[in-house]
Simulated scan of single mutants.
Amino acid sequence: MANMEPVPENLMHGRMQSAKPRVLLAASGSVAAIKFESLCRSFTEWAEVKAVVTKSSLHFLDQSSLPREVTLYTDDDEWTSWKKIGDGVLHIELRKWADLMVIAPLSANTLAKIAGGLCDNLLTCIVRAWDYNKPLFVAPAMNTFMWNNPFTKLHLETIDKLGISVIPPITKRLACGDFGNGAMAEPSEIYTTVRLSLKPRAVNVSS
């Protein structure tokens, strides 16, 4: 695990224009987590990347396939990194380190947790502590029936009020065999959406 030091919350604005942004990528428990490696590779050429994954997501992604320069954190690291009073708390340190966060895939379960303010793993603890002056993007991925469930609409409306940006799912043949909306946007689309949305911010990074 990398040694992480607290950084100023306005780091993005005080950083030189040539410096890479710090991007925290996260995956929750959806079959779409098989594309997390591709997502990480999309961002590494542009940004400094750290990754957070839930226990459920590990059923679908191969940790060893992630780019070597990406530091990966799991729920176990949240507990093993803290030894005594005064030590940094991992979810707080990652919140301070990141200029922006992207959760892809965002499962129905993690969406519900975020909308309800629950924080029972490393990922949701980061979101609960997040500074919403910094961008947070999510790319939902779930079965069509789950996507169309009234709870999903309610939860999306709730996170929208927090300022979380949703990258909508797409319609295709899902992993379960059903055809419909709910598949995670392609990693290239997620990357492009994040880059384009942040482009105007680059003008002010040295202010």
Rank of each mutant, 00 (worst) to 15 (best):
K55V: 09
E69V: 12
T71P: 13
E93W: 13
E69I: 07
K134G: 05
S64C: 09
L94F: 05
R68W: 09
L11D: 11
A2F: 15
D77L: 14
F151V: 15
F137R: 02
F36N: 00
T152Y: 04
S206G: 10
S207F: 06
T171N: 13
N149A: 10
K50P: 03
T80R: 14
G116N: 14
T74I: 07
I167Y: 00
T110Y: 02
W46R: 08
L61C: 06
K84D: 11
C176A: 12
S81Q: 11
S28V: 06
L106V: 07
T192R: 14
K113P: 03
P67H: 04
K161R: 13
S65L: 11
P140N: 07
E5Q: 15
A33P: 03
V49D: 01
E69N: 07
K161I: 04
I114R: 06
G163S: 03
K84N: 10
R41C: 05
W147M: 06
L58Q: 12
G182N: 09
E37I: 02
S28N: 07
D120W: 09
D160Y: 12
A185H: 00
I85F: 15
E157D: 11
P187W: 00
S107D: 03
T74K: 06
K172A: 13
L94T: 12
R68Q: 10
V138Q: 01
L25H: 00
H91Y: 08
S64H: 13
R195W: 03
G180V: 09
S38N: 12
V31G: 00
T171S: 15
L198T: 04
A129D: 09
L174I: 09
G86S: 12
G86W: 12
V49W: 00
K96A: 15
R173G: 10
N3G: 13
T54Q: 04
D120S: 08
R22H: 07
S57C: 03
M146K: 12
C119Q: 11
Y132H: 15
R128E: 09
E69D: 10
E5F: 14
L94Y: 05
L196D: 09
L111P: 02
V166M: 04
Y73W: 11
I167K: 02
D99W: 02
G86Q: 14
V138L: 07
L174F: 10
V138G: 00
D87A: 12
Q63F: 06
A185L: 01
E5A: 15
I164L: 03
R22P: 02
L162P: 10
T171G: 14
L111A: 05
L156C: 10
I167G: 04
S188M: 08
